[in-house]
Nucleic acid binder design. Structure first.
Lengths: 344, 344
DNA sequence: CTGTTAGCGCGTTCAA
DNA sequence: TTGAACGCGCTAACAG
């Protein structure tokens, strides 16, 4: 019962078993093979069994590329991420991949460094690869990127990121309310001067959401906003570590920080300079990532379901790809606040 | 100068500009368009210019799927990773992606949870998608996985992982020597009982490499190996945190730990129980990830170029995919040791 | 229930 | 330097 060689094998390329080989060997047409492979019910059990047997024997594996070309579906989604090695984003990515797997999708992961040039670059190669959908993580959607998004018919959703213009579907928490709550807590502890430490203010999430929550809290407690208490820096541990002198100079007795590593830096910087946390200086952070529990004292933090944000984003995307109706364009997941030892 | 609609547009699908549209509009054959797209020099400058102009005007973007089918190259590589949200692996992944991008490849990222069933599952879908190569990260290569690897003609290399059988190409540091050095340092500080804390011992990297380095160090200093000082656990912070009582009970005065989060847990567990680090208890860890500098005291650690390991792996893979000759099957990158405050 | 026949969009000989 | 024609492996009507 020897089978003939397919042309691919003659040239000794990647020895490749095609649907034809299976069809011939099972003495049916390739259409039938295709049917059993795709679980089409219109196949007599007997022939299905026969085909499956051959598939198994020949170790046939459908070529997803050919399938993609013919069906116009690749079952892969593109994921644009600022930096995988950042826990915040990688946590989202994990949620995305798990749900993707659940729905038989794969993800193409592409780092953008939050750089709009790279983002556009990446978006284009993703579209060229015919991904069925895209998940974007990033903090500032440049006009050009937005234009590309619009022009593309490929479904896109934002994970853990906001679109201030509210045009693109997204999944995240209510940043304004969360920050307001965290800062209010600080105010309750009798802090009058609370530093607002965040990443770049040209990112909507900082300038339009977190800062707003901060101001809301102040307003609610009749504290006037002081520009000098706003510290714009970047998201690194080091950036926080060296911030202490500046914080001291404006007399802040507490800080709300928009990123965990940054917060760890701020706190360690304070402590290394002899300040007692939380007695002399309180710190509250935003993402409740692992390091909040690793540092001493442990950091009080806004909590948000990172993994879930990723997971829900992907689930959302499957609906779009499936052309299902979606009621809401933006999904807000619940946030929380956990008090640890960096606050009174 | 209006152009006709391609069939795709008639059905109002993803409006898709094909190479034919460009050819017609530029009044050349598709072969020519293909040539200019692929940088084939055999095209008269004038026609090249004309074609490029049309490509730009029509915003033509080559369909990578069709290209993949025709050329049998997808310019994407599969990356099997235990867990992206783990900094160790995500750092490798970052290096991989950067080099991949550099060489015009994209990566399909798939989490395996170090679960051999998932690994095989994932490997198969990766191969089905016709990836040009695969980078595998993981600590135990099951026999079945190894069989699949062998059977596949697709190049594979291990990043930051070892193949005790030395059959598969890999990139990593000299774990044995690195651990030996770290443990020797501990011995120099007059520690007689040094705990060896690691992840699962059914992972070759722990049982055959790190443990060997540990034993080497002991032997070199005439200290006999004591089974009771070996602590097998999992890679979490929590696992380390609760280990202290057990460590105390065997009288260890120092510990070598195979993972940073685990080490942070061990150290914090000790301190929370009142032990002074490093005076009463020293800790040394293995990966020099960010948290080694965030905890207090900062953790002394073996250093290894995580990003580079990923980067070099990908570079290595490009050579294999390119069928270039490679001299060495295993690439050992330099490791180091950085003394911080968790050791004397 | 099954087979035939077209493409999917592009790379690639082979002639011209 | 260019074009015609075939094929990559598979899905999707359309017949039967």
């Amino acid at each position: 019962m020897k089978r003939e060689l397919s042309k691919g094998e003659l040239v000794m390329d990647k020895q490749t078993i095609t649907i034809y080989d299976v069809a011939r060997e099972a003495a049916v047409s390739m259409a039938t093979v295709s049917r059993v492979v795709n679980g089409n019910p219109n196949v007599k059990p007997a022939t299905r069994k026969k085909v499956l047997e051959v598939i198994d024997r020949l170790d046939y594996r459908p070529n997803a590329v050919a399938r993609g070309l013919a069906s116009k579906k690749t079952t892969t989604v593109g994921v644009i991420i600022p930096d995988v090695s950042n826990v915040y984003f990688s946590s989202l990515a994990r949620g995305i991949d798990d749900v993707a797997t659940m729905y038989k999708y794969n993800i193409i992961l592409a780092n953008s460094d939050n750089n709009s040039q790279k983002e556009i670059q990446v978006l284009n190669t993703l579209l060229a690869k015919q991904v069925d959908g895209i998940i974007y993580m990033g903090n500032k959607i440049s006009d050009e990127l937005r234009t590309q998004f619009d022009r593309s018919k490929t479904p896109i959703i934002l994970a853990g990121s906001v679109d201030p213009k509210n045009e693109i579907g997204s999944v995240h928490i209510d940043y304004v309310a969360a920050v307001e709550e965290a800062v209010s807590d600080l105010i309750t502890h009798d802090n009058k001067k609370i530093a607002f430490v965040s990443g770049p203010l040209d990112e909507a999430i900082n300038s339009e959401y977190r800062l707003k929550g901060y101001k809301n809290a102040l307003a609610k407690h009749n504290i006037s906003f002081d520009e000098d208490l706003v510290f714009e820096t970047d998201y690194s541990y080091r950036a926080g570590e060296i911030l202490w002198p500046a914080i001291v100079s404006v007399g802040a007795t507490a800080a709300f920080v928009g990123d965990d590593e940054l917060a760890a830096g701020v706190m360690n910087g304070a402590q290394d300079a002899g300040a007692n946390v939380p007695n002399e200086f309180e710190v509250v952070t935003s993402n409740n990532s692992k390091i909040t529990e690793i540092v001493r004292p442990k950091l009080s933090s806004i909590t948000q379901p990172l993994y879930d944000i990723g997971a829900v984003s992907m689930r959302f995307l499957t609906k779009l790809m499936n052309k299902e109706e979606v009621t809401e364009k933006v999904v807000e997941l619940p946030y929380g606040f956990i008090k640890r030892s960096s606050t009174k």
